[in-house]
């Protein structure tokens, strides 16, 4: 008869090993990029346009482009996503329609990012004739992050106690007034968390912007939403695979800026969430 405690020891060892196999490389990736990327960062790198065929100079246009894209995406996705979440938590009945909506959200979250790129190209660039532009890219990214915004907002709205709604309704206050004045204000931190997570996601995605907006090299800043723009993730892709002999510092520097941007957004989201949980009054 085998000793069950020895079996347990061996099993736990392998489980720990699996966990370390995930977490250690994550740490290493972050450390490598900080170690090699941080020295490349200076004011010039952040504020100048790329030079010598993107082998030197800065990444300013890509930062600005990403900023525009992310703002556009959130401007589109936040109102729709938030109202969709309000529908699901406050209005939806337990019926087939609700079931289909939830399934659609799951599917929207699962569509491969490159398929979003194709879709955005077919709909916004070609069909609506927006061309490859910030508008097309933002809308594509916006639809892509919609599920993130909806699911986190639903969570935030559901965390507002049902009793608050009952109290408000019992005073003869209408449903929408109740949502507006009681439910939404108390869900703001959660909604904010979801929004920032969505922003981070949009900032890091490459495939959806490949054909809808991203410019290989564009030294001047976009003048309107109908212009193309550079973007950080695409720029990193370009200088790592499409342009030979790029200085390692430029690559790591770009990767560092992108990673720092995305991770700091996630960090902010986490901080808001935990602060809110501690302060919660009910």
């Amino acid at each position: 008869m085998r000793n069950p405690y020895r079996t347990q020891k061996i099993a736990f060892f392998f489980l720990l090993l699996s966990t370390l196999l995930i977490v250690v490389p994550v740490g290493l990736i972050v450390v490598i990029i900080i170690q090699k990327g941080l020295p490349a960062i200076n004011w010039q790198f952040l504020s100048e346009v790329p030079q010598q065929g993107m082998r030197a100079g800065g990444i300013f246009p890509a930062i600005v482009g990403t900023f525009y894209l992310v703002s556009g995406a959130i401007l589109f996705a936040l109102p729709i996503g938030l109202l969709a979440a309000v529908y699901l938590t406050e209005y939806a009945k337990d019926n087939l329609l609700t079931r289909i909506i939830k399934l659609a959200i799951v599917n929207l979250a699962g569509v491969p990012s490159v398929v979003y790129g194709l879709f955005g190209f077919a709909l916004f660039v070609v069909f609506f004739k927006f061309g490859a532009s910030i508008l097309s890219g933002s809308l594509t990214l916006g639809i892509m992050i919609l599920p993130v915004i909806i699911t986190t907002s639903v969570e935030a709205l559901e965390s507002v106690p049902a009793s608050f709604r009952e109290v408000s309704l019992s005073l003869g206050v209408s449903k929408w007034q109740t949502i507006r004045n009681i439910v939404l204000p108390n869900a703001v931190p959660g909604i904010l968390t979801g929004t920032i997570l969505g922003l981070g996601r949009a900032a890091g995605e490459t495939a959806p912007i490949l054909f809808t907006v991203a410019a290989f090299y564009l030294p001047q800043l976009p003048a309107s939403i109908f212009d193309q723009a550079m973007a950080l993730p695409y720029h990193l892709y370009v200088i790592s695979t499409q342009v030979p002999n790029v200085d390692e510092k430029v690559r790591y520097g770009t990767a560092f800026v992108l990673l720092a941007l995305v991770l700091s957004m996630n960090l902010v989201a986490i901080v808001i969430r935990s602060k809110f949980r501690k302060k919660k009054k009910w």
Binding site: G204, E205, Y234, T241, L258, V262, N266
Partner: peptide, 18 residues
């Protein structure tokens, strides 16, 4: 750590993989 991994953009992971 796992959440961090989910947040890293795929192009960055691709770059590190390269």
């Amino acid at each position: 750590g796992v959440e961090l991994l989910a947040a890293i953009p795929s192009v960055v992971l691709g770059f590190v993989g390269m």
